[in-house]
Amino acid sequence: MTRQKPSVGNRILGVLGEILITLGILLMLYVAWELWWTNIDSANAQKQVTQNLVQNIGDVKIGDDTEEDIDYGPAPVAEVNPGETFGIMYFPRFGSNGSHHPVTYGVGRDVIDNLGIGYYPSTQLPGEKGNFAVAAHRQTHGQVFWDIDKLQKGDKIYLQTKEGYYTYTWYETEIVQPSNGDVLLPVPHEPDAEPKRSILTMTSCHPPFTTRLRIIAYSELTDWRPLEAGPPKEIREMVKDATS
């Protein structure tokens, strides 16, 4: 019995079907790379720059409970140089999977795609009156700020630099348009205002897996401890983990 040859139309449909299947596989591989491998790649890069920073800082004293109530006076302004990783940020609210991440000068893709948290160079420095603003991904590339929407009243964010430990207390979160750059002003949304306090502004995309909006979390500098005094009690185990 002679097999009937497929028509030209059927052959074209077969080729198109194979192309679509191939494209589907490639798309699945890309999604897997974006959602999985970029997190691993970023975590390895963050670990390396954190280790380099710890070596530059030197031995870190952990301290004990008797040192908690000492008033160390006003916080100094941190020294930050272009291109350097200058701090480690700790987030007790984020839990063990996202407890600490390095902070690096700049918010280009070379920083936030690989090194965790980026610092906006146009904003103020830690300890300075005004707005110390940072950015990080909420998903992929380490998803550092995945839980940024979980911050609650009384939550603390800690920044460790060679000067010491800066403690920020969360007070507000808002959702804005990507074009709303006045969240980075010394006093957010108030172009002519003179800053009277030091704040931390964390920015990321919102909702997750989109870039349609921005989520902005604000915290105020409420305490400071020199490096030799050891970290605040709440983050001692995190500091041990980060500096070991």
Rank of each mutant, 00 (worst) to 15 (best):
Y158H: 04
L200W: 07
G24M: 10
Y171L: 05
K153R: 07
P226Q: 08
F209L: 03
V60R: 02
D69V: 15
W36L: 10
V111Y: 12
L23S: 01
L159C: 02
L185P: 14
T173C: 01
E174N: 10
E67K: 13
R93S: 15
L115S: 05
D59H: 05
D113Y: 00
L125H: 07
T201Q: 08
V107F: 13
R93E: 15
L159Y: 04
S96N: 06
S122R: 07
K240H: 03
P126H: 00
L26C: 12
E172K: 05
G164T: 08
G116Q: 07
M202W: 01
K5P: 11
R3K: 14
H101V: 05
S179L: 03
R197E: 15
L125G: 06
E128T: 08
Q160K: 09
C205N: 00
I70K: 15
H189C: 11
P76H: 07
G230L: 09
I199Q: 01
T243R: 02
P195Y: 09
V107M: 02
T140F: 04
D41P: 10
Y105H: 13
G58C: 00
V239G: 00
L115M: 08
D69C: 14
G164M: 06
E228P: 08
L221W: 00
T167E: 01
T169M: 06
E174I: 14
R93Q: 15
G230D: 08
Y171V: 02
A229S: 08
L200I: 03
R197N: 12
Y171I: 02
P178H: 05
V176C: 09
A136Y: 06
W33Y: 01
Y165V: 09
G83Y: 11
G142V: 02
I70Q: 15
A43C: 04
L26W: 13
T211F: 08
Q124I: 12
P232Y: 08
D155P: 06
G106A: 00
N97G: 11
K196I: 13
L27H: 06
G230K: 04
I157M: 09
I215R: 13
S7C: 00
N114H: 14
T104C: 06
T66H: 04
I12D: 08
I148Y: 03
V176T: 14
G24P: 10
L227I: 08
N180E: 14
V176A: 07
Q177A: 14
M1Y: 12
I175E: 02
T66M: 03
L125C: 04
F145G: 02
I40K: 15
